[in-house]
Simulated assay, not measured.
Amino acid sequence: MGGALSLTLVALAYPTMLGLKTVSTDSQRIIAQTQWGPLTEGDRDFVVKVRAAGLWEYPVGQMAVKKGTTKEVVTAGEHLIDGHAALDTTCRRIAPMLNIQLPNVASPQQQQFVAQLNSDSGKQFDSDFANILRTTHGSIFTTIAKIRSTTKNSLVRALADQANDTVLDHITVMEKTGLVDFDQALFQQTFPPKLPDSEVTPPPPAAGQPQVVLTPPPNATSTPVALPGDPAPAPSSTVR
């Protein structure tokens, strides 16, 4: 694998991969009691992480659709757009229910990922895209499992279920590009570099700023989580 990719991952790869460190050492500290169950610091940070992930992976997916030189890279980009649009819808719906403030831009670290891929072209783009995204998704996979197994909040649990399915799908399509350097990716997941909090925390939205919406593609196949109070889906009709 080329030296440019190695430098990119060493310089940018994850401490928490989706952009936010917890604000204290006790992620299980309850910060609110809600009708959907207690909300911990870890729960809140997870919702913000999922939102921040979409704010950089959605535009990177759009890049891959335009710049990818293989069908597999283009397909991976389409999956990023589709999956993160649905996750973002869920985040934006549950955040006000849980009194969670969502960012409108990704963390500085995540913006560097976007800048790196924006500057790439051709085969270099394909390679960096597949490896950066495989590393980031692999890193967050265990975080999702921990939240899913420990949260007592049903809304956060539902988001974790959706995120688990989406991240596994994205890992799979990155691997199908045939471009992933597994030794490099697994090393970065196991020994992430330490970065200051300012690099991995998305800034809060400016007062009065409209909320950024990640629009689902016309052919979307991923769907947001059904929340309490949502109307039941209409029964499918059968032609006889």
Results as ranks from 00 to 15, higher is better:
Met1Thr: 10
Gly2Phe: 11
Gly2Lys: 13
Gly3Met: 15
Gly3Glu: 15
Gly3Val: 15
Leu5Met: 09
Leu5Tyr: 07
Ser6Gln: 13
Leu7Tyr: 12
Leu7Gln: 15
Leu7Met: 14
Thr8Met: 03
Val10Phe: 14
Val10Arg: 12
Ala13Pro: 03
Ala13Tyr: 06
Tyr14Leu: 04
Gly19Cys: 01
Ser24Trp: 11
Thr25Lys: 15
Thr25Ala: 14
Asp26Ser: 12
Gln28Thr: 15
Arg29Cys: 07
Ile30Cys: 07
Gln35Asp: 13
Gln35Tyr: 05
Gly37Phe: 10
Leu39Cys: 05
Gly42Arg: 03
Gly42Thr: 10
Asp43Gln: 07
Arg44Ile: 09
Arg44Trp: 05
Phe46Met: 02
Val47Thr: 08
Val50Pro: 00
Arg51Gly: 00
Ala52Asp: 01
Ala52Trp: 00
Gly54Val: 04
Glu57Val: 01
Tyr58Cys: 04
Pro59Glu: 11
Val60Ile: 13
Met63Val: 05
Met63Trp: 09
Ala64Gly: 03
Val65Trp: 11
Lys66Gly: 10
Lys71Val: 12
Lys71Met: 13
Glu72Cys: 05
Glu72His: 06
Val73Lys: 06
Val73Thr: 04
Val73Asn: 02
Val73Ala: 03
Thr75Asn: 13
Thr75Gln: 14
Thr75Asp: 15
Ala76Glu: 07
Leu80Ser: 01
Ile81Asp: 04
Asp82Ile: 11
Ala86Ile: 06
Ala86Lys: 04
Thr89Phe: 04
Met97Ile: 14
Gln101Ser: 14
Pro103Met: 08
Ser107Gln: 05
Pro108Thr: 10
Gln109Ser: 11
Gln111Lys: 13
Gln112Val: 03
Ser121Cys: 08
Ser121His: 08
Lys123Cys: 03
Phe125Met: 02
Phe125His: 04
Asp126Glu: 03
Ser127Ile: 12
Ser127His: 09
Phe129Ser: 01
Thr135Asn: 00
Thr135Ile: 02
His137Asp: 02
His137Glu: 06
Gly138Lys: 00
Gly138Leu: 00
Phe141Tyr: 05
Thr143Pro: 00
Arg148His: 14
Arg148Asp: 06
Arg148Pro: 03
Thr151Leu: 09
Ser154Asn: 13
Leu155Lys: 05
Leu155Thr: 11
Ala158Gln: 12
Leu159Phe: 07
Ala163Tyr: 00
Asn164Thr: 06
Asp165Lys: 06
Leu168Trp: 01
Asp169Lys: 10
Asp169Trp: 01
His170Tyr: 03
Ile171Val: 03
Val173His: 01
Val173Asp: 00
Met174Pro: 01
Met174Thr: 01
Val180Tyr: 00
Asp181Val: 06
Phe187Lys: 14
Gln188Asp: 07
Thr190Leu: 12
Phe191Asn: 13
Pro192Thr: 05
Lys194Val: 15
Val200Asn: 03
Pro203Ala: 14
Ala207Tyr: 06
Gln209Tyr: 08
Pro210Tyr: 09
Leu214Pro: 02
Pro216Gly: 10
Pro217Met: 11
Pro218Ile: 12
Ala220Trp: 04
Ser222Glu: 13
Ser222Trp: 09
Pro224Arg: 08
Pro224Leu: 08
Ala226Asn: 13
Gly229Ala: 03
Gly229Thr: 14
Asp230Asn: 10
Pro233Trp: 11
Ala234Thr: 15
Thr238Met: 15
Thr238Cys: 13
Val239Asp: 15
